[in-house]
């Protein structure tokens, strides 16, 4: 399976790339910078470069939060226009799936005692352009999914240090991501026809005392995956 990881210079991408290389054919990209990490530099413009980047790619792992730095203008441009170009090329070049790594910080301003799940509306804030960009980036992905141009798994990951109730350890992130890459959506069989799902959001964080976010959806995926593995 060939996987493209975006924002190759970011810390989160570096960890993901290093781990995924154990089991997958991985390439990575970023829009600029010193290319001493063997990534493909691509501006994600409406150009053939973006199409070439996606040649034979099966899955894109997009860093939808905190993968870029710069002015507000640069960030908004990247998380809207560049992601639009990436997804447009992906849909034109037969990429089957995108995993967008977003953030549970989209709920950071909510009260801690709320039992927040994937069904809750997010609360982006205007005072932090990075959070605003994560929200806009999710929205671009959602519209590509809505138009059935590409299947999107939008994962919102925990944040904070190991004392935080929202914490997600690097080890858990990498373990959970591998599961999500290999997981196939379970289409519920009902008397009514259920079309294939193009858009799905999953919340993940580590199991810590007073865990802030409900992760039952991911837990059920994890259980199903284990059962399937045992059968094999």
């Amino acid at each position: 399976m060939k996987i493209l990881v975006t924002s190759a210079k970011s810390n989160i991408s570096k960890k993901i790339i290093m781990d995924l290389k154990k089991n997958h054919d991985v390439i990575s990209t970023d829009v600029s910078g010193q290319n001493n990490h063997n990534f493909v530099q691509c501006q994600l413009d409406e150009l053939r470069d973006t199409d070439l980047l996606l040649k034979d790619v099966d899955i894109i792992i997009n860093i939808g939060y905190d993968g870029q730095s710069g002015s507000d203008k640069i960030l908004i441009d990247y998380y809207t226009r560049c992601i639009y170009n990436l997804l447009w090329s992906a849909s034109e070049n037969g990429v089957s799936r995108v995993i967008n790594i977003s953030t549970l910080k989209l709920f950071e301003t909510c009260y801690e005692n709320l039992a927040i799940t994937e069904n809750w509306s997010t609360h982006p804030i205007s005072s932090d352009v990075n959070i605003l960009c994560a929200y806009l980036c999710e929205m671009v992905h959602k519209e590509f999914a809505r138009d059935k141009k590409i299947k999107v798994t939008n994962i919102r990951i925990g944040f904070g240090d190991s004392n935080s109730t929202s914490f997600l350890s690097d080890g858990d992130l990498l373990k959970y991501l591998e599961l999500i890459i290999n997981y196939k959506q379970q289409i519920k069989k009902t008397p009514y026809q259920v079309p294939p799902q193009y858009w799905e959001t999953i919340h993940i964080q580590s199991k810590v005392p007073n865990q802030r976010f409900i992760t039952k959806k991911f837990d059920s995926i994890f259980d199903q995956f284990r059962k399937n593995k045992n059968k094999e």
Binding site: R81, Y84, L87, P124, S126, M139, E143, F144, R146, D147
Partner: peptide, 26 residues
């Protein structure tokens, strides 16, 4: 909003969401 992926519709819709987010906390 359900703008879809048409360039004009989606880019304007993203702009509208920026406005909405600003009205939430200002």
């Amino acid at each position: 909003p359900q703008p879809g992926t048409r360039l004009y519709a989606l880019s304007k819709s993203l702009g509208q969401e920026v406005c909405r987010v600003f009205t939430e906390d200002n």
